[in-house]
Design a binder for these strands. Structure first.
Length: 279
DNA sequence: TTTACTGTTCACCA
DNA sequence: GTGGTGAACAGTAA
């Protein structure tokens, strides 16, 4: 479910609740959720440690521990991270429960069980989680028109696929890929190598703008977050094209069109985002 | 009953 | 090596 803006929302809401809390115990209902090193080693290494702060990189979350070790996690499609009172109703698909020293719990829920946790020991190089392959954050000033063109501008692949590749820019998923290309007025199916100079300019500008706006739109209180069980994000009402196949384009009124690119649906305005580049 | 799904990785083939 | 496709992971919901 979550892309960068939603993952950032989770971090912003949970960090104040988790910071300074000691992990007094860990319940592991599904050991396979822990990808590295093993569920047993992970458990022994985190019990008794204090959560110093919470971070984010792309769609990954970090729990930095006072021992210098770090818990990494990725929610993939349906992962949810909740800070709850101990007597909060038990939800289905609760795979991990971190019991904290103030009596609250940090629970990991995941219907489809695609999400993963890793423990990175402080002296250890992270070769397991995939973080090393990530491109820069979308807000990194190194993302300039020239940098983008250098990175993906020779590819004949559809520009949407290049944006979804986490090695290009970290954190863009199927929703915001569509939203970014709509804002840039670029058809998602266009080969990246067909983009004009003006389009690289626009693309570099809208990537941080669209994602920052989504982070802002997603703002909610911890109470609202818990009420929505960590899965009801605020993005829906703000999306211009994703999920709006057949609706009128908010810009020109033409009917939005849906196509499939590498198995993912893409929605765009055939009028504002023409398939053939304007000469 | 069938299909699609906001993520990622891997196998296979051209 | 590059690129494209499809499957796998597993469950829910339309």
């Amino acid at each position: 479910m979550p892309e960068l803006p939603e993952v950032e929302t989770v971090r912003r809401i949970l960090e104040p609740q988790l910071k300074g809390r000691r992990i007094s115990d860990l319940t592991v209902n599904r050991p396979e959720i822990i990808a590295h090193p093993t569920a047993d080693i992970f458990t022994h290494a985190v019990i008794g440690t204090v959560i110093a702060r919470m971070g984010r990189r792309g769609k990954y979350l970090f729990l930095h521990l006072d021992t210098g070790n770090t818990i990494l996690l990725h929610l993939r499609m349906t992962g949810q991270l909740l800070a709850t009172p101990a007597d909060f109703p038990a939800e289905k698909h609760t795979h991990l429960i971190f019991h904290l020293d103030d009596g609250t719990e940090l629970r990991y829920l995941d219907t489809r069980r695609f999400g993963r946790f890793w423990l990175l020991q402080k002296t250890e190089k992270d070769i397991w989680s995939g973080i090393q392959k990530l491109g820069p954050e979308p807000f990194d000033p190194q993302i300039t028109p020239a940098w983008l063109r250098e990175k993906i501008g020779r590819s004949r692949r559809p520009v949407k696929e290049c944006l979804l590749d986490q090695r290009t820019v970290a954190g863009i998923g199927n929703i915001y890929g569509d939203e970014i290309l709509f804002a840039a007025k670029i058809c998602p199916a266009r080969p990246a190598c067909s983009l004009r100079e003006q389009e690289w300019q626009t693309l570099a500008a809208v990537i941080p703008a669209v994602l920052q706006k989504a982070v802002d739109d997603n703002r909610m209180t911890p109470e609202e977050y818990l009420e929505g069980r960590g899965k009801e994000y605020r993005n829906d009402p703000f999306l211009q094209v994703y999920g709006h196949e057949g609706d009128s384009c908010p810009c020109c009124g033409a009917a939005l069109k849906r196509i499939t690119l590498s198995g993912r649906s893409s929605v765009y305005c055939p009028n504002c985002q023409p398939e053939q580049p304007i000469p």
